[in-house]
Design a protein around this nucleic acid. Sequence first.
DNA 1: AGGACGATTAACT
DNA 2: GTTAATCGTCCTC
Length: 208
Amino acid sequence: MPVSRDRLGRPAVQLAPRLLGAVLVSTLGQATVALRLTEVEAYQGLDDPASHAYRGRTLRTAVMFGPPGHLYCYFSYGMHWCANIVCDVDGRASAVLLRAGEVIDGIETAFSRRPAARSERDLARGPARLAGCLGLNGTANGSDLCAATSAVQLQSMPSRRARGVQQGPRVGISAAAERPWRFWLSGEPSVSVFKAGGRTRQRTDRQT
DNA sequence: AGGACGATTAACT
DNA sequence: GTTAATCGTCCTC
């Protein structure tokens, strides 16, 4: 039985630390991969300049404005997919980005989807790597994680906040970079390397 | 219609 | 530490 939807109907900043240790299971492509979440980030919709939903509902962000418990997948840098769990109540955009996890089942399948991974800890270390392991892409956008018939499910979630939860700035953003809305489990090898939010790209000053 | 930029990754030096 | 790859989305003419 997947996690019940009402447990996810709370703002991302509240839910994010509670998702550490939760288990996601994908049966996409007739293979099973299960993953235990070790690092997440909260994005609080209209209150959060770093959120895709900040400027309101668009075709891309529509899922975030819907009921909790669905997957929001987006395409990044022209080549990667990243995945979020939509949370908070229907109509309020809020989502938790899945940044890293430990593969606990289907390791062979995960490696086949991530040929560049050299070790188990690299399989789902980083949001696009995590999505890659599970086979998530645009087709999975909107998937209901709380439905027993769904190919992607949130199988379990700790009833209390896990021990060893750490908190700090989010990765790779420039807006609202000071908000400490990244959460991870201390001592987990799968947690991604810290980079303070800000410019990760060269300036594009034109020459005169 | 055009362009800047990104919730990134992998492969380099 | 640096940089190329690559394209959907959204904002500005």
